[in-house]
Design a protein around this nucleic acid. Structure first.
Length: 568
RNA sequence: CGGGGCAUAGCGCAGCCUGGUAGCGCGUCUGCUUUGGGAGCAGAAGGUCGCAGGUUCGAAUCCUGCUGUCCCGACCA
């Protein structure tokens, strides 16, 4: 590509709206431009990166035998009513009506459509298993779009769906797909982790997420030091402590704690560590009565674990202050389990605790020396909290550390949720109708562009992994307008490198060297060749890798350059 | 959905408090010089100050409403 004809649109200044590095650099490099909140145009430069990502994803999908197709972005409401998700999806889904007042949505995902597609097509076990995929624009009306492409409303996703006669075959394809995701991320050269995940609204049994590691990541990952366990913090399990509960060392005693309504304040007032206190959280139960959840003072509630508890409403709903006063006789910040008749569910970490500090159900007072059995009947114990760094791994070996990641892939074993809801069945060898098992597999194509930048950048700009760089190499001429020799050498190099299969950019814009160097670094071209009179005389060219400290000499020879750029 | 910013030239910003002919830097255009890290000089173009209403002789500036956008929050009592 000749850059004079490429409409590069780099800027020196960082746009005010951009918060995180990938967003700033994509705007500065002129890869994307914001149209409205969560909606971005891709420039020709950005498009080159996007295409390279797509092609890697496509190649790896094809390699495991997945079949590419394309489904409509706009989907009829009736299909979503059949699966029950028209209401369940809520405001996340962008809805619209056509001139005949028929209802549609802009697809946030395609389980319904693909199931319907397969239903019309597949009748016999002989046609399964089958895996379809598409690379397509989705729209999700996020509560809060932010960070540029990281959480955009419109985004490009590869979504794949597989259909199987039984769970064992689903598991086989799930592993295949997981292997393909490893291959994709390995080819891109990114540092990533695979973690156990919560399935969320999509449903189904088993699911794992692929996260590109980055400090700006929105997700926290719990990874054991020995590598045997990795889970999204939403799904990371805690371990019920071993051993015996210590005997009480004193009687339940009410202490005045005026104005103390936080754990931090309580710990300070009582002169004990936060871990010696127990916090009481009131959520609504399925019976209509509230349920009291108790955690160690220094632990935090895991909302997903809580709403999955039997008897607790999902989605989790906090009790309002009036409800709390009715059942506890005190306001939030002063409540506890003593003398209440609500169901109490306590976190495992409190199972062996004794002599706790808890709220007294009396505004401005707490109890010390609270003990299970004596001061309140033994409660149900459950895994309620988020794991912390340093916790024991649930596998029994190693301890957990917390990493931050950007979710770029998610693989699910859905089971028969959609095939059953949409009435998909095929005949097996004996002529019996069987509801197929389904898997679904998402990969964030536009998001991984941002994730790659989060992981690969420096002060000068983006440092693309070569597999997804907009160009492999850039040729920069010095004093091209004065030197016919430089011009000719550049033209020849450009033509020959292109013919040799190198994705080469030739900076023929006639700029001074400074801006050319700066642009090449900002847009992250992995390899740079500088052509000048003083080099031409020696038969050498100047070469610099994007991450190299210093430039070096390279033979003025297309084969030699190609070897360096394309690795042999 | 709750809270808080912000909205003035293509981009980044000042001006607003204390009303009186709209400014700076970058970028853009022309000319000359310059050419190994975002050049210099000279000249030029470019803005219904987000929208609507109000106050005033007069509004970018004060008041009201709306819209857009960004950030924080929407579970720990």
């Amino acid at each position: 590509m000749r850059l004079s004809a490429f409409a590069l649109a780099t800027t020196k200044e960082t746009p005010a709206d951009a918060e995180i590095v990938s967003h700033q650099l994509m705007l500065r490099a002129g890869m994307i431009r914001r149209l409205a909140a969560g909606l971005y145009s891709w420039s020709p430069l950005g498009m080159r990166v996007l295409r390279k990502v797509e092609n890697i994803v496509r190649a790896e999908m094809d390699a495991i035998g997945a079949l590419e197709m394309l489904m409509p972005a706009i989907q009829p409401a009736e299909l979503w009513r059949e699966s029950g998700r028209w209401d369940a999806m809520g405001p996340l889904m962008l809805r619209m009506t056509d001139r005949a007042e028929r209802e549609y949505c802009f697809g946030p995902t395609h389980e319904e459509v693909i199931t319907d597609y397969v239903k019309r097509d597949v009748r016999s076990y002989k046609q399964l298993p089958v895996t379809y995929y598409q690379i397509q624009t989705k729209f999700r009306d996020e509560i809060r779009p932010r960070f540029g492409l990281m959480r955009a409303r419109e985004f490009i996703m590869k979504d794949a769906y597989s259909f199987h006669m039984d769970a064992a075959d689903l598991d086989r394809e799930y592993r295949n797909m997981r292997g393909a995701y490893h291959a994709i991320l390995d080819r891109m050269g990114l540092d990533y982790r695979v973690v156990a995940a919560d399935s969320g609204d999509i449903g189904g049994a088993k699911s794992e997420e692929f996260h590109v590691l980055a400090l700006s990541g929105e997700d926290e990952l719990a990874v054991s030091t020995d590598g045997a366990y990795a889970a999204n913090i939403e799904a990371a399990k805690t371990v019920r402590p071993e051993g015996e509960r210590a005997a009480p060392t004193g009687e339940l005693k009410k202490i005045e704690t005026p104005g103390v309504t936080t754990i931090a304040g309580l710990a300070e007032h009582m002169g004990v560590p936060e871990s010696a206190t127990a916090k009481s959280i009131v959520v609504m139960g399925e019976s209509g009565d509230p349920v009291l959840l108790m955690l160690r003072g220094d632990h935090s509630l895991n909302e997903i674990k809580a709403q999955d508890l039997e008897g607790v409403v999902s989605p989790l709903t906090m009790a309002d202050e009036a409800t709390i006063r009715t059942h506890f006789g005190a306001g939030p910040g002063s409540i506890g389990p003593v003398n209440t008749n609500v169901t109490v569910i306590a976190d495992y970490a409190l199972a062996n605790a004794s002599d706790m500090v808890v709220g007294a159900n009396y505004d401005g007072a707490h109890f010390t020396h609270f003990n299970w059995g004596r001061d309140h009947p033994e409660p149900q114990f459950a895994d309620l909290r988020n794991v912390n760094a340093g916790d024991a791994s649930p596998t029994g070996t190693g301890t957990l550390e917390i990493l931050r990641g950007i979710e770029v892939g998610h693989v699910f074993q859905l089971g028969d949720k959609y095939s059953r809801a949409l009435d998909l069945s095929v005949l097996d060898e004996s002529g019996n109708a069987v509801v197929p098992e389904m898997g679904c597999y998402g990969f964030g194509v536009s998001r991984i562009v941002a994730a790659a930048i989060e992981q690969c950048h420096d002060d000068a700009g983006i440092c693309w992994p070569q597999a997804i760089a907009p160009f492999d190499l850039v040729i920069i001429p010095i004093k091209a307008d004065k030197s016919a020799a430089v011009r000719e050498a550049c033209e020849t190099l450009y033509t020959e490198l292109k013919a040799a299969g190198v994705d080469v950019a030739y900076d023929d814009r006639g700029l001074r060297p400074g801006p050319m160097f700066a642009d090449a670094e900002l847009i992250g071209v992995p390899h740079r060749i500088v052509v000048s009179d003083r080099g031409l005389e020696s038969g050498k060219l100047e070469y610099k890798g994007r991450r190299d400290e210093q430039s070096s000499e390279i033979d003025h020879d297309v084969a030699a350059i190609k070897a360096v750029v394309l690795g042999g």
